[in-house]
Write a protein that binds this DNA or RNA. Structure first.
Lengths: 215, 215
DNA sequence: CTCATAGCTTGATCTGTATCAAAGAGGAGG
DNA sequence: CCTCCTCTTTGATACAGATCAAGCTATGAG
């Protein structure tokens, strides 16, 4: 792993910056140190679908692939820990443990993508929003913060959320405000919120009871 | 690779048979020799979303994962080439080429899942159907059949297609018949069809011009 | 402090797809 | 050849969410 240390460097981007363009050569791989980035695809006529959300500890890059097929954009100010592609690939060939870890990451992403397919194809607007908020809660807890760290942050605008969930921004706004009115969420400002009724939130998500969220 | 030969066996299933249940221990990995199987997830209340379609040459199984999180069902009669899990895993540790190939497969699936997310989240019913039919054309060509092999087969019922595309069976039926009426497709029976106007089909898919389908 | 602007909310209306309902094939088994 | 039974088609209607259209509210620049 000392070899990895030798080739790493940090890069920062401001909120809104494009980190990589669809079709770009993948000249480095990186992991997110702090901040949030979005992976998204745009159709010819401008319709956008987010296909992933990168948060601290997430990884960008794919062994043996030269390009990526989506845009990567900084949603907030973000710091990446980057490894130049060439030496990283060499490392893969020599250290089996690294490539095993990458396989795990790829399979985790695949599982997440499939869960998202259920959300996009079959869930109602309400269920989509509840699932999204629950995910924000879970991921911000995992990010080393205490279990009762409140308020939490919505790292995306209403418009970005709508592109993640396959909705319009108006529908996102209405559903979020409905959850507020019902006393499930409380907002300090547009970005900062607290979950008042975790049980109701989960019940609204359409997911199996006790997915282990509260454990 | 002789080691792989030594541990393989064939299994067949009839159309409709459940091949693996969600949560099942993954006691073998397999590749599809012939026939089609579906991967799908069912919500508590019965809503179903297909998250993948296995056709000849596709692979089931994931290194280092003990269970799967979706159902695998035979859509047609199907033959699998199976490898017992334990010896297969041992092989992974000793033959790097195999695990590289598995990584490629996982990344291909991830790309496919992300494309499907765009379809589910942003495409209209018409675009979904056109994309699906185009995919059937492409995959049946790849399966070693001549480029002009017609008629082609729809290996799924209208109901199954609706679960793949995030629609209802009625909408699938209507859209398919609309394409027929417009002279884009021709049906011999419910399952066998020909593409009359490939260009119109592609134009209706919502995908970028010339995705290399016709080349 | 004031303005400009990007993001958000809220209301009215429209529409694509779901839902509900019923009847029409096609194939398998007797 | 008839009879189920499953799959499919087709029509009528309902509704969730999109679209269109104002306003509103933070925030950052000047």
């Amino acid at each position: 792993m000392q070899q990895l240390e030798a080739i790493k460097s940090y890069k920062t981007f401001a909120a809104g910056d494009q980190i990589m363009w669809r079709g770009d050569a993948l000249i480095y791989v990186a992991s997110v140190v702090q901040g949030v980035a979005t992976l998204s695809k745009t159709m010819e006529d401008g319709r956008i679908q987010m296909v992933g959300l990168l948060m601290p500890s997430d990884f960008i890059g794919r062994p043996d692939r030269q390009t990526i097929d989506f845009d990567v954009v900084a949603a907030t100010d973000i710091t990446l820990c980057c490894f130049a592609r060439k030496p990283f690939d060499r490392l893969l060939d020599t250290v089996p443990h690294v490539s095993q870890r990458l396989m795990e990451i790829a399979l985790d992403e695949l599982d997440a993508a499939r869960d998202w397919m259920v959300l996009l194809g079959r869930k109602t607007a309400r269920e989509k929003i509840a699932t999204f908020v629950e995910m924000m809660v879970r991921r911000q807890h995992v990010a080393g913060l205490g279990l009762d760290k409140q308020p939490l942050v919505l790292p995306l605008t209403r418009d970005e959320i709508s592109n993640y969930l396959g909705l319009t921004l108006e529908t996102v706004s209405r559903q979020l405000n409905a959850l507020k009115k019902e006393g499930v969420l409380r907002f300090n400002d547009r970005r900062r919120f607290e979950v008042i009724d975790m049980h109701a939130l989960h019940a609204a998500s359409g997911d199996d009871a006790d997915g282990g969220v509260l454990s």
